[in-house]
Design a protein around this nucleic acid. Sequence first.
DNA 1: TTATTGACAATAATAATTATCATGTGATAA
DNA 2: TTATCACATGATAATTATTATTGTCAATAA
Lengths: 139, 139
Amino acid sequence: MGKFINKGLKLTPQRAAIFEYLDGNKSHPSAEEIFIEIKKRYPMISFATVYKTLEALKSRGDLLELSLDPERRRYDPDTSPHHHLVCIKCKKIVDIHKDFSLEIPEEAKVSFDIIGNHIEFYGICPDCRKKGGAENGSL
Amino acid sequence: MGKFINKGLKLTPQRAAIFEYLDGNKSHPSAEEIFIEIKKRYPMISFATVYKTLEALKSRGDLLELSLDPERRRYDPDTSPHHHLVCIKCKKIVDIHKDFSLEIPEEAKVSFDIIGNHIEFYGICPDCRKKGGAENGSL
DNA sequence: TTATTGACAATAATAATTATCATGTGATAA
DNA sequence: TTATCACATGATAATTATTATTGTCAATAA
């Protein structure tokens, strides 16, 4: 959980468990998934603590909130610039670490101060292709 | 409201109002914004009708649901392939009609069947730059 | 006409998220 | 030590967003 310690957040057992779960995690979990997972070790943890910790990390720039899934917010501990590949069937999200060096379009140049970009590729993952239409796969 | 008629949906006054509001609309409204606007003319319309109509249009491919704003779903009647420019201050969304012809990355090729992509450029719009920090602008 | 269907509004229900608040805890000062 | 303070926690309430259910009515089929 290295990347999350000493960020001005007091390290409590609950937070340590959340940090440990998040660090290096590539599954882009939702708040509920994080809660369920942490609860296995700390059955007394509350949803509020999870949300508050996520919010704290987010506001410190150590956690990305993804809007790729309209059903719920999902989180990504990898804050380095990267893009995502989303399965439209099972909502699995895979990282794409590649720089596309997009040329800023004219409409943007003349008006917005562009800060960054994010590309969502969407398609059907191998699991869903095989199964021919599973509604949920492993995240 | 041309683009929405004769799509297998019976044309009711409520739907006509929703269609008229959406057709050509570039503001990427939320369900609530649509509801409020329609209510001015049809005060008896219900939120459920708005949601159902949006869902119906969405499932017919005549309306895009945008996941750019984590707070709420926003809708785009322009179903032609295009990208978006989002102001991180006021959440204004502007269309970018430009083909970036992204080369499909290796990670994707070997696994996912890629169907499409969407680029979100984010930055600060001229209004917010001037105002130096308005929390809400016109959508 | 009668049965059926489809759409509506109203309402209830559910899900996701945020806020409130009393209590607890660790770090540090007295 | 103990007092204090700032912050964290968990329980729960409240909100917000969305979806589902129900009863009604009008249009249509039988």
